[in-house]
Computed example of a mutant assay.
Amino acid sequence: MLESSFGLTFFLKVPRKKSNLRYIYLRITVDGIPKETSTKRKWDITRWDQKAERAIGTKEDSKIINFFLTAIETKVNQYRNDLLYAEHSITSQKIIDFIMGRLVPKVKVLEEFLNHNNELRALVDVGEYAIGTHECKFR
């Protein structure tokens, strides 16, 4: 499902306390709905080009932060393309959740518990644990 507009912007958020070091934020806008999240990286405002949305300079630290931001941008574009190919709806919240790692389906969590319980049952059968360790006593 195509979106009518898509935007990805990196910017330095103004802190409550006056400081030259500011957090780099990512803003994703899909169909006019913006969502923001922190990249959890700080950068000096005097060494930031807002037009290019990248760090200024040729020092190693600016190269590292620019590479990090490019990697995030690539990851977002890849996920967006995956959603397009799968014909799923694209929302800014869905993309932010993907970046933050919050897209683990709940079914997977239940599968992990089932796998853990099966492994524990196998250890009970071998004699490494008592049956009381495996059984639920919350009733």
Rank of each mutant, 00 (worst) to 15 (best):
S5T: 14
A130W: 12
R139M: 13
R139S: 13
V109Y: 06
V30E: 00
I56C: 03
V76C: 03
L120E: 03
D31H: 05
H134M: 12
I33A: 02
E53G: 03
D82C: 05
K13T: 07
D31A: 02
V76L: 08
W43E: 03
N117S: 04
V76F: 04
K51I: 14
D44M: 08
E53S: 10
C136K: 13
T70K: 09
L26A: 00
L103P: 04
S62C: 07
T9M: 12
K42P: 06
I65T: 12
L21Q: 14
I96R: 01
A55M: 08
A55R: 02
E53N: 08
I33E: 04
P15Q: 00
R47H: 08
R139F: 14
I56N: 01
H88C: 10
K75C: 07
V14P: 08
V109F: 06
R139P: 13
L26R: 00
V124Q: 02
P105S: 09
R102L: 13
L114P: 10
L26I: 11
Y79A: 03
V76E: 00
G132E: 15
Q93H: 10
W43A: 04
Q78V: 15
S38T: 12
K108N: 09
G101N: 02
I90M: 04
K40L: 10
I131C: 01
H88W: 09
R16I: 11
N66K: 02
F67G: 08
T9A: 07
V30D: 02
I24N: 00
T39A: 05
S4Q: 15
V107F: 12
N81F: 11
T91F: 05
E119A: 11
N118S: 07
G127N: 09
R139D: 12
V30S: 01
T29L: 03
S38E: 03
H88L: 10
K137Q: 10
Q78C: 06
M100Q: 15
V126E: 15
L110V: 11
G57R: 02
K35Y: 05
N20F: 06
I28G: 00
A130F: 13
R80K: 15
R139E: 15
L83G: 02
H134Q: 12
F68H: 03
V126H: 11
Y129M: 09
K17V: 14
S89Q: 12
R121N: 08
I45W: 03
A55E: 04
F67T: 15
F11L: 06
K106C: 01
T39L: 14
A130E: 15
E36D: 14
R121G: 03
T37S: 03
Y129N: 04
I131D: 01
K42S: 05
S92W: 00
